[in-house]
Amino acid sequence: MITAERKPLEELIDYVKPFKRILLLGCNECVTVCAAGGRKEVGLLASGLQMALLKSGSNIEIKQHTLERQCDPEYVEELVPMIDGSEAILSMACGCGVQQLATRFKDKPVFPALNTQFMGASERQGVWAERCQGCGDCVLGITGGICPIARCAKQLMNGPCGGSTGGKCEVSEDVDCVWQLIWDRLKSLGQEDRYVDIMPAKDWRSGGGSGPRKIIREDLAE
C-alpha cells in the first residue's frame, strides 16, 4: 500500500485559515489501512482543527467526507453536488488523490493534509515498512524475494557493503541489512549461486529516470 503520515497541525492551520468553509476529504484505500487518512482520521482532524482554530479566534465550517478512492475520477465525481459549499479542499489522501482533486476542480484550492511516505507492507499492528520503490523492472526473482533497491540504504545490487554488522545496516540498528536477509534466504532455498552473477548497472528509465511514467492498456483505455 501507499503509506502516509499526517502533517503537523500548525502547517494545516496555515493552509485553511484564509477560508470560511472547507471540505476535509478522506480516502478509504491505503491511507485508511495505515491509519493516516480514513474516515476516523478525518473525524479526529476535523475536531482538532476546529478546536485549534477556535483558540485562535477563528471559526471555519469543516465539512467531512470520505471517498472510496480519491485517485479515481469515478469516485471524485461524487463530490460535484457538494463541492460548491466549500471554498477549499483539505485532502487526507496520498499525493495521487490530492492531484486528482486539483485536476478535477480547477477553481478550488486543494491542500495536502498528509505527507505521503512510501510503498510498504505492514510488519505488525501499527508498523509499516518500505518494501518497493517501483523501479519498473523487478529483481525479486534473483534476490530471493527481498528487494535491495528499496531496502538497502545504498541501493547496492551486488551484495552487502562493508558496514553490515550482525545482520544490521550501518545506517541504523533498527534496519536489517537487506543483503544479510537475501543471503540467508538464498541459502535456505539452496540458491547461493544466484549471488555469484553480477547484476549489471540498472536501466533507470523504467524507474522514472526518463520522466513521469504512464501505463496504457490498449484493451481498456477509452
Binding site: 551484495g159 562493508g162 558496514g163
Partner: peptide, 19 residues
C-alpha cells in the same frame, strides 16, 4: 576496490571478492 573481511555475513566476504 575495497574489501572488508570483518563485515557480515563472513561467509559471503570471499564470494564478494570473487565477484
Amino acid at each position: 576496490a575495497a574489501a572488508n573481511p570483518f563485515a557480515d555475513p563472513f561467509e559471503l566476504r570471499v564470494l564478494r571478492l570473487e565477484k
